[in-house]
Amino acid sequence: MHRFRVADPAAPGSRWALGEYFAEIGAAFGFETGTALDDAAKAFVPPHGLFVVAGRDEEPLACGAVQFLDEERGEIKRMWVAPVARGRGLAGALLAYLEQQIVLTGRRFALLDTNSSLTKAVGLYESRGYRRVPDYNGNADADVWFSKELGTG
Rank of each mutant, 00 (worst) to 15 (best):
T152C: 06
G74I: 06
A91R: 03
H2G: 00
F22I: 04
M1R: 08
Q101I: 00
A91Q: 05
P12E: 14
P134K: 01
R15P: 07
S14N: 06
P83H: 09
Y130Q: 01
L94C: 08
Q67M: 11
P83Y: 11
V144G: 09
W145R: 13
G123E: 11
P134A: 05
D113G: 12
T114L: 13
G151P: 09
L124A: 05
R86S: 05
T105D: 03
V84G: 10
Y130V: 02
R131Y: 02
Y21H: 13
V133F: 12
V81F: 06
L150H: 13
L61I: 01
A65M: 01
G26E: 10
L94I: 10
I25S: 03
T35K: 02
K42P: 00
A142G: 12
V45H: 00
R108Q: 14
L98M: 09
M1H: 03
A23I: 03
F29A: 11
F22C: 11
L50N: 00
Y97M: 05
E24K: 09
G89H: 06
V81L: 03
R86I: 08
A23L: 14
I25T: 10
E72S: 08
A121E: 01
G153R: 15
A43C: 05
V103G: 00
D38M: 05
R15H: 03
E59Q: 15
Q100M: 01
F22P: 13
L111C: 10
N137E: 14
R108I: 04
G87A: 08
V52C: 01
H48A: 14
I76T: 06
C63N: 07
E72F: 09
N137L: 12
A7Q: 06
P9W: 06
A85Y: 04
V6W: 00
T119Q: 10
E20S: 11
E75A: 15
G55M: 02
L112I: 03
R131T: 10
R86D: 11
R5F: 00
G87C: 11
A7C: 14
D143E: 10
F146Y: 15
E24Q: 14
G34F: 04
D113Q: 12
Y130K: 01
T33I: 05
G87L: 11
P9F: 07
L18N: 12
I102R: 00
D39Y: 04
P47F: 06
Q101D: 04
G30C: 10
L150K: 15
G55L: 03
Y136T: 04
D8E: 05
L118A: 07
Q100N: 01
D57C: 05
T33Q: 11
Y130F: 15
G129I: 04
G13Q: 04
E58K: 00
K120I: 03
A140Q: 12
G13F: 02
L94D: 10
G153I: 05
E20H: 13
D113P: 11
